[in-house]
Write a protein that binds this DNA or RNA. Structure first.
Lengths: 220, 220
DNA sequence: ACTCTGTTCGAACGAACGTTCGAATTATTC
DNA sequence: GAATAATTCGAACGTTCGTTCGAACAGAGT
């Protein structure tokens, strides 16, 4: 009776050989709804500032009822962050497939990031802003995804550097780019600002021309 | 007896005509120490995650004793953020004085920001990361400083735009620049990364060449 | 009708939270 | 050294926190 809350991940592993998509159970469905409501609350009040009673109110389920779907508040945050981050990485890989031009690949990276960011602004804010909230096991599993995403971007920029014989610090460039993009959750206003495509073009222009102009002599 | 905690700001206003610097009282001195310790704790655990008992332990003062120096946890955060932000704006103004070249002025802005950021990394993280933690009166007073700082940067970029006849969205450019710079608190490692001057040069190169190359046709 | 499994909830747990109060202690002034 | 003011503290306030427990409810299969 006590272990029902971990049922979901266990259930999904039935028949590891079958490639057919597993139909979402009622349990998975309801969990998804709760995650969505929790994302809103975490976004508004922050992880520490949001109480389980806030989540209960937002999702229309009793306080105790929530614990049927996950075993702790921390695991709930983990599920949100992991799903969000995994999705953005998966979409990026799909979009990069078949594109060879180095500059175009960087532009795809930027567009993918910003499009997902603005389409899922709340989840992405929770991912960006609560990056330090998880501990130990949860933290390290998420750090692994983060590192993979970071390495992909480093690869794209190194390719560009080689192709155009540029010289700049990849580390500073990548982290500057992440900063430009992730900071958007602090200022983007859908009633004032352009859509993701336009912003991606403008940021892409600034970043790429910044990195591609000047050629040798800078950085190391 | 109950109003002693507001003594400091009241005391400072004696003889508004005198320009001589007011010698820091014992009260001001001790408050400053507490603010420094509180900055460390807020930086490590976040504003919501840090308890008054954590602050008590860190500053070596009893829980009740803290309330002699400020009337609430929120006001404590406000004092930290206001002092940090005011200082960076004051220093910027002093550094910009006498410099006419538009590009140089932008570079001074970047250098000032990053130098202060890395020299006071904990305070700047608290300023960046806890930007939404304050409510109502506290929030609006801080928003005023923030707006002034933002407007200064907009002015610098508009000057550059006019001088070089460039075309780009000032808003996107300014906010991208802030993103590049403020994100640094998530990744900077003093044992791995260069000092503020070198990073400021690299970020300045990326940003300025990004904004200055291409000329007309982009943005609006 | 009965059982079994999956789902929901009211009530409560102990711990920790921000804040207050009056007394005790320390520094300053005469 | 007595009197006054500034500073510190132990103890407690009422509230809210994350989590647990056992009972109640629903639906499907027999």
């Amino acid at each position: 009776m006590g272990s029902t809350a971990t049922r979901s991940s266990g259930r999904r592993q039935r028949s590891a050989t079958a490639l057919a998509p597993v139909p979402p159970t009622r349990f998975d469905q309801r969990l998804k709804e709760i995650l969505a409501h929790a994302t809103d609350v975490f976004c508004q009040k922050g992880y520490e500032g949001a109480s389980m009673r806030d989540l209960s109110r937002a999702s229309g389920m009793s306080l105790a009822g929530l614990y049927y779907y996950f075993e702790s508040k921390e695991r709930l945050l983990f599920l949100i962050q992991k799903h969000t981050f995994s999705t953005i990485v998966r979409r990026l890989k799909a979009r990069l497939e078949g594109v060879d031009d180095a500059e175009e690949r960087v532009r795809i990276f930027i567009l993918n990031h910003l499009e997902y960011f603005l389409a899922n602004q709340q989840a992405m804010k929770v991912l960006s802003h609560e990056a330090e909230a998880l501990k130990n096991g949860f933290a390290s599993e998420l750090a692994a995804i983060k590192r993979e995403y970071y390495r992909i971007c480093v690869g794209l920029l190194d390719d560009l550097k080689r192709e155009r014989e540029l010289q700049f610090s990849t580390r500073i460039a990548v982290l500057s780019l992440f900063g430009m993009m992730n900071w958007i959750y602090t200022w983007h206003n859908p009633r004032v600002d352009a859509d993701a495509e336009a912003i991606a073009r403008e940021m892409g222009d600034i970043f790429l021309q910044g990195v591609m102009t000047g050629g040798r002599g800078r950085g190391r």
